[in-house]
């Protein structure tokens, strides 16, 4: 019987070529298994054959990211694999990124199962968890055999189209996918059971883990308010009437940039809220209730602040992903900085 063709990607170190001194190594191919490929072949068993090992220096990979992709893809394709493995990379920064990147390319271009293995705290885990099955590994090569075993388990299931269970059962980095399942008990009963366990300080498992958030050190205080340019932004959905940018009422995919030059008061004639999920009657009656332009213009006139920045940025917070919100926040902060804004007021409904 013909064996299932496997191609394996590793770096210069695991390829036995050299350490940092060889990190600039250009891609090359070795026939058969090399280094960790020996364990990979053993665990895969006789049904499979590692036909080629692709080796590339970590620096060469990350410094030539766009060039290296087609180069490696060609080498991989030449060997006509049915399944592709990379690494495991453990907690290695560049190697993990290389493994994740090449897996993504192979998955997309060749449409075959791909698996790599990384440590949960590695940059590659954060970068690729959504798009790839990443076997969860130890943080160093001491965990080689178990890492390869986990990669093989995932790879074989993907190839044979077998169902893949929960991350903690199958040992991969959670992909952020929620799946509907039937439960014996109602939600209320499950919630109370969880609470009882929590009160008893027993281990319990949440059904909806909260995303983790950044912490940033507090900004320095302003020395002089009367010298400050103040910017306004927020997620209450205030937009010019008619919502010209069509900001979505829920799960906003963008934020808007709007001028309030010469405007001393947000009125319901010119502005409104595009927000879903809360009753916007009051915000539409008087949008200052969400973005206090009237007060800040008065404080500007009175000389309490130097200026209210003439542009405000606005989005809808309803169901908007943390990831998108973080990006909007970073962009808006940069725009404020570029405009010499000294302080920003963010309002949320």
């Amino acid at each position: 019987m013909e064996k299932i063709r496997v191609v394996h990607y590793i770096n210069q170190f695991f390829g036995g070529i050299g350490g940092e001194d060889k990190a600039g190594l250009e891609p090359l191919v070795r026939t058969g298994k090399v280094g960790p490929g020996i364990a990979l072949q053993n665990i895969l068993g006789e049904e499979y054959e590692i036909v080629a090992t692709i080796i590339c220096g970590d620096n060469y990979f990350v410094e030539n990211l766009e060039k290296v992709k087609p180069e490696l893809l060609k080498l991989i394709k030449d060997h006509n694999p049915q399944i592709f493995f990379a690494g495991p990379a453990f907690n290695a920064g560049r190697y993990g990124i290389a493994c994740g990147t090449i897996c993504e390319v192979v998955q997309k271009e060749l449409g075959i199962p791909v698996v790599t293995g990384v440590f949960s705290g590695s940059p590659a885990a954060e970068m690729f968890y959504r798009d790839l099955y990443l076997a969860a590994t130890a943080d160093s090569a001491r965990g080689m055999e178990e890492a390869v075993r986990r990669m093989v388990n995932l790879g074989v299931k993907l190839l044979k189209k077998l169902p893949i269970g929960d991350p903690e059962v199958e040992n991969y980095i959670p992909r952020g996918i929620r799946q509907n399942i039937f439960s014996e008990d109602l939600g209320a009963k499950r919630a109370v059971a969880m609470l009882v366990k929590k009160l008893a300080k027993e281990p319990f498992k949440t059904e909806y883990p909260m995303p983790s958030f950044d912490r940033v050190p507090p900004a320095h205080p302003l020395e002089s308010l009367s010298e400050a340019i103040v910017g306004l932004t927020g997620c209450g959905g205030i937009v010019p009437k008619g919502n010209p940018d069509r900001i979505e009422a829920s799960s906003a995919s963008k934020y808007g940039t709007y001028s309030i030059a010469g405007i001393s008061d947000l009125t319901g004639e010119r502005f409104e809220s595009a927000h879903g999920g809360y009753d916007t009657t009051y915000a539409n009656e008087d949008p200052d209730r969400v973005l206090p332009v009237d007060i800040l213009r008065d404080l500007e006139k009175e000389g309490k602040i130097k200026k209210l920045h003439d542009i405000f940025y606005s989005t809808v917070g309803n169901g908007t992903s943390v990831e998108n919100a973080r990006r909007y926040g970073q962009e808006i902060a940069q725009k404020f900085k570029d405009a010499a804004v000294n302080a920003a007021i963010v309002t949320s409904t």
Partner: peptide
């Protein structure tokens, strides 16, 4: 802290 979700900076 603001006033309420539909009117964080007001009270109709």
């Amino acid at each position: 802290p603001a006033v309420a979700i539909p009117y964080p900076l007001g009270d109709p």
